[in-house]
Amino acid sequence: MKRLFAVFMLLLCCSCAERPVLPAIKLDFISASGREDRSRLNIKFGSKTDVLNFFQNATGESQLGETLYCSLDKEVEFEDFDRLTQYLVGDLVEVDGSESGLSHIYVSTLSALKKEDEGVSNVFMTASELLAALRERNTVSCRVFTSAYSFGGHYSKPMLIPANDLVRVIQ
């Protein structure tokens, strides 16, 4: 009976526990530059939030990583990168941003991928496929995804990049 009571109390306490509301991460597009292989892009962006230490600063917990995802699908906005069928993806590194007025400046080298075999396989897109996808839209929506064990994943607010800027650097 004591064990049952202890389990009941544990469940009761867990049901009342709330996860803290995480602050929004706003990203500001700065520039895009091309790479020699033309199917990869460098995106430079800034944020007032320290994205690389987001969970440490917000909750005290270590984070598992951070990735920039950009949708190339017809629907510009996205909530979950797993649902994207064509996208740009890359890790980010912080660079010196003392001249920008933003607290943190990041660069992400993005690779273009598309899902095949009903979403089972991810295949790199060619430069011509990437250009075709970019020419079908006015903007590309990008979001940083970061996660921690206790909190799961967290997305930044969308950062809209003019598609013409990306087309220009690929050509």
Results as ranks from 00 to 15, higher is better:
residue 1 M to L: 09
residue 3 R to N: 14
residue 4 L to C: 07
residue 5 F to N: 02
residue 12 L to F: 10
residue 14 C to T: 03
residue 17 A to W: 01
residue 18 E to N: 13
residue 25 I to K: 09
residue 27 L to V: 04
residue 28 D to T: 01
residue 30 I to V: 10
residue 32 A to H: 09
residue 35 R to M: 14
residue 35 R to G: 10
residue 40 R to M: 11
residue 41 L to R: 00
residue 42 N to R: 01
residue 42 N to L: 08
residue 47 S to Y: 00
residue 49 T to H: 07
residue 50 D to I: 07
residue 51 V to I: 15
residue 54 F to T: 05
residue 57 N to V: 06
residue 59 T to V: 08
residue 59 T to E: 08
residue 62 S to K: 15
residue 63 Q to P: 08
residue 64 L to I: 11
residue 66 E to C: 14
residue 67 T to D: 09
residue 67 T to L: 13
residue 68 L to N: 10
residue 68 L to F: 07
residue 68 L to Q: 01
residue 69 Y to I: 01
residue 70 C to H: 00
residue 71 S to C: 04
residue 71 S to Q: 09
residue 71 S to L: 07
residue 72 L to F: 12
residue 72 L to A: 02
residue 74 K to P: 05
residue 75 E to A: 15
residue 75 E to D: 15
residue 82 D to R: 10
residue 83 R to V: 14
residue 87 Y to H: 13
residue 89 V to T: 12
residue 89 V to E: 14
residue 90 G to C: 01
residue 92 L to T: 01
residue 93 V to P: 04
residue 94 E to F: 05
residue 98 S to H: 00
residue 99 E to S: 11
residue 101 G to Y: 03
residue 104 H to L: 10
residue 105 I to C: 13
residue 106 Y to S: 04
residue 106 Y to G: 00
residue 107 V to A: 11
residue 108 S to Q: 05
residue 110 L to V: 12
residue 111 S to D: 12
residue 112 A to Y: 08
residue 113 L to W: 09
residue 116 E to T: 08
residue 118 E to N: 15
residue 118 E to L: 13
residue 119 G to W: 07
residue 119 G to E: 11
residue 120 V to N: 11
residue 120 V to G: 00
residue 122 N to C: 09
residue 123 V to H: 13
residue 126 T to M: 01
residue 128 S to N: 09
residue 129 E to I: 02
residue 133 A to V: 03
residue 135 R to I: 03
residue 136 E to R: 11
residue 137 R to A: 05
residue 139 T to R: 01
residue 140 V to E: 02
residue 141 S to C: 13
residue 141 S to F: 01
residue 142 C to Y: 03
residue 142 C to F: 02
residue 143 R to T: 02
residue 146 T to V: 07
residue 156 S to L: 03
residue 157 K to M: 14
residue 165 D to H: 08
residue 167 V to E: 15
residue 171 Q to N: 15
